[in-house]
Nucleic acid binder design. Structure first.
Lengths: 118, 118
DNA sequence: TTAGAAGCTGACACATGTGTGAGCTTCAAG
DNA sequence: CTTGAAGCTCACACATGTGTCAGCTTCTAA
């Protein structure tokens, strides 16, 4: 299938399909004219990519785990669980930082509003 | 005081002091030779900027709230509390998104590890 | 055969705080 | 006066997924 069709069936923009290829997540063959030609598994692959992106993984990590994914991005082989655990740890750290910032800002607001009342 | 001194007493790099000025957070006067000259209040201002940055506020917002800050970034006039509340809401949304991503990733990991055991 | 749709590549843009470097000028101490 | 430190400006780089535009080529349907 052509890139426009794949975009239509997956809801992912043509631009992004090209980007995913640039990131080695998709590897369409080329027609003699140079147009991308995707196999029938491509829509599933794109759905997996989206599922992993939506799970917060960067393309660099998806590139590693993609060969180990089965189903709609909900199962991966144990071979990449270390990678996923790293990623999870990183996300938890980011959440903790954000939460800490949030608390700091909330504290400022509380002081401000207490002063407004008092 | 000169920029190098200010950097030394605040621990903030010269590059960042120039950046804060570019963002209208600091407004040193200039010597006839074009060198920045900071008043004695500058270290406090820089500490406030850092406190607000560390609370997760972008410079664009800090620019607005800075004139209303008192103390070491721990109190602001009520005039900017709407702005802060917006910011707080935005941060809470970001945290929620991240948390949701984290849960998605954790779910994948759980399935993977359950499969590794079973 | 021809026009228009769809494809191609390459590039720039965004946000955002921060590092780094080049190339030049000013300042301060000897 | 001279020299080296410190300052100046301007610019590019990073990450990251995504939009958009220009300029050209291929494909497809009439």
């Amino acid at each position: 299938m052509k890139i426009g069709e794949l975009a239509a069936v997956t809801g992912v923009s043509v631009r992004l399909l090209r980007y995913y290829e640039e990131q080695d997540l998709l590897t369409p063959v080329r027609t003699p004219g140079g147009h991308r030609s995707y196999g029938p598994e491509a829509p599933l692959t794109v759905r997996r990519i989206r599922a992993l992106l939506d799970a917060g993984l960067p393309t660099r990590v998806i590139r590693e785990v993609l060969p180990c994914v089965e189903g709609d991005g909900m199962f991966v082989h144990p071979c990449v669980s270390d990678r996923l655990r790293d990623q999870l740890r990183g996300m938890e750290e980011r959440i903790a930082e954000l939460e800490s910032s949030r608390a700091g800002l909330a504290a400022i607001l509380e002081v401000t509003e207490a002063a407004a009342v008092g």
